[in-house]
Amino acid sequence: MSADPATPHRSPAWPADEPWHLAMPEGTLYDALVRAALDRPSHPATVFYGASLSYAELRERVDALAGFLQSACGVKRGDRVMIALQNSPQYVIAYYAVMRADAVIVPVNPMNKTAEIDYLAADSGARVAIIGSELNDIFAPLAGEAITHTIVAQYRDEILTRRPIRCRHASPKRRRRCRRRRAGIPGHLRSRKACSQAQ
């Protein structure tokens, strides 16, 4: 350790030509996304199962979802929005969109059960949720009461393939039953449809 606190000891792994301290950029996290989209529009922002989403595409989807949250879901500055998604491009899009809509993110563990989510919704005041499709059954009892709007993300939408990836154990009968159940949930809307409606 250096005797002078103003000159900290440099790690031998730290590049000699790099500054020891980094300046904090101005603005919000969304502003950083805007700068990245302007500076490097075609640079990959996310890569998910081989599918790349550029910074320009990411910003476009974030703006569309933020607009949908504000216009269709009535999200205003300071409102809470639940995000219950796995690590995916949809999580990144939802996270930035909630910030862009001047709302507050309420991250939810996708392993939570209905009673826990009901408590989190009541405690945080969240009335809107962005969820993964695997959580339909968990959020369905709260639809229309604790949660007024639910936007459902399909992870396969971001995978490079012409054919949707299906679980080999899921029967056609089970898939039809799942589609019928989703159709009856009040406020249920797929994230792709939400983004296209906002544009």
Rank of each mutant, 00 (worst) to 15 (best):
D118C: 07
K113S: 07
P186F: 04
A3Q: 15
S171Q: 11
Y49C: 07
W14Q: 09
P110V: 11
D118A: 15
K76S: 13
Q154L: 13
R180G: 05
D63R: 05
I185V: 13
L33S: 01
A56M: 06
A97T: 06
L33E: 00
G27F: 07
M82Q: 09
I83K: 03
R168M: 10
R35H: 11
W14T: 13
D63W: 00
A121W: 00
A66W: 01
H43T: 10
Y95F: 15
I117L: 14
P107D: 04
L160A: 15
G184W: 02
A129L: 03
V104R: 04
Q90N: 11
D31K: 08
V152K: 00
E57I: 05
P110K: 02
R40P: 01
I151R: 00
C73E: 01
S88T: 09
C167W: 10
V34Q: 08
L38V: 12
L33N: 00
S133P: 02
E158S: 14
A153W: 01
G132Q: 07
H169D: 15
M24W: 09
H21E: 14
I159N: 01
Q154M: 12
G50R: 03
L33V: 02
H43V: 07
V34A: 05
P41T: 04
G125N: 08
R180S: 11
D39I: 04
I165V: 14
Q197F: 10
R180F: 06
G125T: 06
E134Q: 12
R35A: 11
T150V: 14
I105C: 10
R192V: 07
R80P: 04
C167S: 14
A122F: 07
D79T: 05
R182Y: 04
P25S: 11
R162S: 13
L22I: 10
A129F: 02
A94N: 04
A36N: 12
M1V: 12
Y96T: 05
D4Y: 07
I83R: 02
L120S: 03
M1C: 11
A194H: 03
R179G: 02
V75T: 05
S124K: 03
G144F: 00
A140N: 02
R10A: 10
Q197P: 00
M111P: 00
A126T: 06
Q70A: 14
V108W: 01
A36T: 03
E57W: 03
R80N: 11
R176A: 15
Q199I: 11
P41F: 05
Q90L: 03
S71T: 13
T161N: 10
I83L: 14
S196E: 12
V62K: 02
P15E: 06
Y55P: 02
E134R: 10
P110Y: 08
I105Y: 05
R35T: 09
I159R: 03
P89Y: 00
Y95C: 05
I83T: 08
Q86T: 08
A56T: 06
R156K: 13
A36D: 06
F68A: 06
A56N: 06
E57P: 03
V108R: 02
A84M: 15
A153D: 05
M99Y: 09
A94S: 15
